[in-house]
Design a protein around this nucleic acid. Sequence first.
RNA 1: GGGCCGUUAGCUCAACUGGUAGAGCAACUGACUCUUAAUCAGUAGGUUUGGGGUUCGAGCCCCCGACGGCCCA
Length: 505
Amino acid sequence: MYTLQDPSPKTKKAQASSLTEVRLTKAQELERMGIPPFATGFTPDLTAAALHHRFADAVFDGSEPPVSMAGRIMAMRILGKASFLKVRDGTGDFQLYLSRDGLGVDKYNLIKKLDVGDIIGGTGRPFRTRTGELSILVEEFRLLTKAFRPLPEKWHGLSDIETRYRQRYLDLMVNPSARETALARTKIVSYLRDFLACREFLEVETPMMQAVPGGATAAPFETFHHALNRKLYLRIAPELYLKRLLVGGFHRVFEINRNFRNEGISTQHNPEFTMLEFYQAFATFEDLMILTEEMLSGLAKHVTGSYKFVYGDHEVNLTPPWPRLTVREALIKHSGLTEEQLDDRNALFIKAVESGLDVRPDDSPGRLRMGLFDEFVEKKLWGPTFVIKYPVEVSPLARRNDEDPTVTDRFELYICGRETANAFTELTDPLDQRIRFEEQAEARAAGDEEAHFLDEDFLRALEYGMPPAAGEGIGIDRLVMLLTNSPSIRDVILFPHMRPEKGIG
RNA sequence: GGGCCGUUAGCUCAACUGGUAGAGCAACUGACUCUUAAUCAGUAGGUUUGGGGUUCGAGCCCCCGACGGCCCA
């Protein structure tokens, strides 16, 4: 026999509000009547969606077999000797109709112990009310879970942004848009998996805890392994491990998983975020531009029904092909700098300082160009645009261009003014890779916390020979933001990072 | 990190120039056998984000902190 525990002092304190006290009292009363307020063993045989689908056009004559359904009470309309309960399960809403005549007085009166928010199961025959609503004429019902806390208000719902993020379960219960975004995210990730799997990419998992964090320009989180007595880092990217797999002979691999970067929190940044990275041997960054057009336009069509969608105030059109622009061309077009100035380190430096950029006196021309690019160009690239020919000093893992060794065979894809994908033909030459790492190590020694670490094992792997390949990373959270028209990354992450709440956690 | 804005009942929101903190929904009591934000009558519900200050008097003014939002870096 189930027994309700006495509330602990902490629970009592949390239930100081009379609203919760009333509900606790109802649970205790039910238990005294032999009815457990937290039950188990009720198996629904029909969901709300299936109910509405199956009986959409049905004409009822009372011969339908009974169905069992379960869900959370979202509204109760009690009209004396008859009552309507609006109930929500994982697929939608349905209505239970209970009458005193149908259930008997004792059973019917139990609805007085129910509250909005409780989870119940009901069994009965489907029928249509006078106003035509498909409902269940309840013959049996059971309380499955008593809710001690009241739900947010039925009409305005839950709109407080902070509560929606902190208590996502409430957001999901009462705000359809929260559900829709979460479902869209799942749909997006599934599509990408299928897209890559169909092209014979192998999904793999590589370490999230790494002794040497690599593959991106970012500050890592540190953690500590007691048994090994050594510091470990949460990964900032899977890149160097996926490339090791290329060396090992897996020629098409991808991973969809979390990265962790120790940087500020904003509408665009969560400390942990999900990245798709994929690598294809014997391909170049040019091949990946084609692949990316196909993948993301197909994704948009799959999710929104069209190559075009709205983000914020603007329409975005992902119909391929997408324009390509070199970093130089983009700067000339959007920053006001001339050809000559772009080649003049001094002119670049002056422009950067004038623009209020955080620059160091020894910054290279490439670094200055990218600083100016971020300042003047990025937010203007609304339609999908491949930006190519990135300076070698900001691309330490990418292959140099054969004609111009100061730039790399790399692209970044911009959509809605945001970097959405980053890809390059991979650097396979271990001698060049070591030089790049050493340059990064110097920057790190000079105080750049985001500079790459030198990874000796990765160099050793390259020395065994990595097939020529191209690789790409796509930030899933930002992609979901675009396709769900979400203004904040917190809208597309079920449990976004928040500072600890006062009095809880 | 900086600037601006916000935090009032379970939820959504009011409260004039500093003068008794209110409403709707939810809850509670009662009526009501086809409701759809059910309706009707009544009742109760507050450490105004925390701390300090000014004042005869502070939700409101000042200072410090917490959390959140927006913008900037």
